[in-house]
Design a binder for these strands. Structure first.
Lengths: 199, 199
DNA sequence: GTAAATAATTTAACAGTGTTAAGCAAAAGT
DNA sequence: ACTTTTGCTTAACACTGTTAAATTATTTAC
């Protein structure tokens, strides 16, 4: 019965094909154009087939968002490894966060945008191996001489995130007016908050 | 022909009824529940009637957004009038912005949220009598001894807005976890940027 | 190898969406 | 009184997510 594994492999393939197709549609035509029948078209099945793999459309969305969280965490982790100085690590991590938002703007909108059911902060801050955890670990390390409470670290992370997420949101809606202005604002903001960690 | 005015008055009434109905539905059931037929139900007409007043659903949305901009500008202007000191004016204005976002959260989502077609920054910053203009006027006044360029003022306004909009976005999605933490972050952020105006 | 059972996939349908065209009844103009 | 315009509705189209039934293909049992 080695065919069982072959069948399972095909099923897995279909599952990822569905997710890939969904992302492809969104990248080409935007979130509002995503429909079950369009996904079905691409994977060369009919729409009801998708329900063998996902409970409903929302389940596809949350799965895509989860893929996004994984990818983001990976990139942030990678950015950390490029620096040794803690403050530089933090800067690199936030910059990679920034880059992710624009490289994978559709995913970012899904993960943190207003509209779909996905939350953002709670999930991202508490889950181990998330970018939130990775970044706040560095914040803790930088502040360690001040013996910060977990609540304070959380607040600092929150402050960072607010301004960066705000900047990103604004840039995502009026797509990229004045790139270097943003980069300057971003750098200023990161530097400002980082200074407040040790002062 | 005094009836012409009566008819016009009825038409205007219908128009505002449509907008009111739309906002009512959104407040009760959220944006995704808004439909032309539901609006028609409330105003006791059939759906196609709405197209006599608005080109399409999107036109209703942008009109609502414009109402939002007007209301926001009014509130910000009012906040300014409660203080005489420039820096306090600025703080009060941003606080009223913050309050608006939560008092009229549906409108705020429409005006600045990701998803619908409305942009935010350009429109708000350039239009006279908008909250953006009002706030950046105060920024200019505070910075006047430094002879700031328009570009610098714009960037400062942008910085304020980013962090405040970021904070709001995050609070709108995970609705209000820890109110006073946010207020503290907000106050810190505003103070920090304000200090950077005169330093 | 053929028949029964099971799995895989599709067709048809439901209730909803935005939107447009055709039809009808009442009012207005001549 | 007849025609034209206006206000409004019904019917329809092309979509949407989703479910149930029907069909086809594949596996299992004998």
């Amino acid at each position: 019965m080695g065919s069982k594994e072959r069948i399972q492999r095909l099923k897995d393939e279909n599952r990822t094909n569905i997710l890939d197709a969904a992302l492809q549609i969104v990248k080409e035509e935007g979130w509002q154009a995503l429909s079950m029948r369009k996904i079905a078209d691409i994977i060369e099945y009919t729409a009801p087939m998708i329900y063998e793999y996902f409970a409903n459309k929302d389940a596809i969305l949350t799965e895509l968002a989860n893929q996004g969280y994984l990818l983001l965490a990976k990139k942030v982790k990678q950015a950390k490894s490029t620096e040794t100085d803690l403050e530089k690590q933090l800067e690199a991590m936030w910059f990679s966060y920034w880059d992710f938002a624009f490289e994978e703007r559709e995913l970012y909108q899904l993960m943190f945008g207003i509209g779909t059911a996905c939350c953002g902060f709670e999930k991202t801050y508490k889950c181990a191996e998330s970018h939130g955890k990775l970044i706040s670990d560095v914040i803790r390390e930088i502040m360690k001489e001040k013996n910060p409470s977990e609540e304070l670290i959380c607040r600092k992370y929150f402050t960072y995130w607010s301004i960066i997420h705000g900047l990103i949101s604004i840039n995502l809606v009026n797509q990229g007016n004045g790139d270097n202005t943003n980069q300057e604002v971003l750098k200023d903001a990161i530097y400002g908050i980082t200074r407040s960690l040790t002062d």
